[in-house]
């Protein structure tokens, strides 16, 4: 039982890293970016190629996965996304679905449709017994890395100059621009960091989530649930939502295997009925 909760926690933390970028672009910048998973996939494949084919140590590939996805995000933001900010929701939906389709079949063409197996270093494999609880080392590693990331992000947004600029730019673009905040640059950097985090999440999750070219479509619903259940007032909402979702998914699949894959939707419906504005929404 405790082991299961631990697994759920690791899974939830992973979901958080995957979707926190979307919480900012979609939740704060109001851009419906359904292609978020494509950046995660890019990071995942970067890690798989670097470790399996080029023999780089797994830990070294993690920052590279971040950079690959961040650069991709930055370039796309500057060239294409920036034209879509002012468009209607429908335009953004169509545009990003188009991107997802291109990423999915492009990756299929490059790497084939089979699932990629990531060879983890031996010191991250295996399980240990801590206080009578059987813990997977990689799961513990995930929780540690994602936990640190969550704290850093929260501090970054609430405590730094960049964070306050971002919040100002999101609340009122025109005024922020008027008081001299470089709104465009702030958005571009935010988008790149969000995509980079997704890439890092994809790299960390390549082993437990299963990496196929279909990844961006498969996990789209998870990302959307995290963002809308969590609300967007701070990074904490999406964090709690991710953990809730991770626990529900892991426990559901273990205890009711036939219906387990429906657990996340059950959570979604309950939240929508009880609190349509999200669990931790900003007071309107």
């Amino acid at each position: 039982m405790v082991t299961l909760i631990f697994d759920g926690l690791a899974y939830g933390m992973l979901l958080f890293v995957l979707s926190c970028g979307l919480a900012v672009t979609l939740g704060l910048m109001n851009f419906i970016n359904l292609a978020h998973g494509a950046f995660a996939m890019a990071g995942g494949y970067a890690t798989v190629i670097l470790t399996n084919q080029m023999g780089m140590p797994f830990l070294w590939t993690l920052p590279l996965a971040f950079i690959v996805a961040a650069v991709a995000g930055f370039v796309l933001e500057r060239t294409l996304y920036v034209r879509m900010y002012a468009r209607s929701d429908l335009d953004q939906v169509l545009f990003t679905i188009g991107l997802v389709f291109m990423a999915v079949s492009g990756m299929d063409w490059l790497m084939g449709s089979q699932q990629q197996i990531l060879h983890l270093p031996s010191f991250l494999l295996g399980r240990v017994e801590v206080l009578g609880v059987n813990i997977g080392i990689y799961r513990a590693f995930l929780i540690a890395v994602c936990g640190v990331l969550a704290i850093v992000l929260q501090l970054l947004i609430t405590r730094t100059r960049f964070g306050s600029r971002l919040r100002a730019a999101v609340d009122d673009q025109r005024v922020a621009h008027g008081v001299g905040i470089p709104v465009k640059t702030v958005f571009a950097v935010t988008f790149a960091v969000g995509s980079g985090l997704a890439g890092l999440g994809g790299a960390l999750g390549a082993e437990i989530l299963g990496l196929t070219p279909n990844f961006p479509l498969e996990f789209l619903i998870y990302f959307l649930i995290v963002v809308s259940v969590g609300g967007t007032s701070s990074m904490l909402g999406p964090l709690y939502a991710s953990i809730l979702l991770g626990l529900a998914d892991v426990l559901g699949k273990y205890y009711i295997p036939t219906l387990g894959s429906f657990m996340i939707y059950a959570v979604l419906v309950i939240v929508l009925v009880v609190r349509p504005q999200g669990l931790f929404a900003r007071a309107a």
Partner: peptide, 8 residues
Amino acid sequence: GLLMVVFV
């Protein structure tokens, strides 16, 4: 996908 992106 390309069609959708270009079209939009």
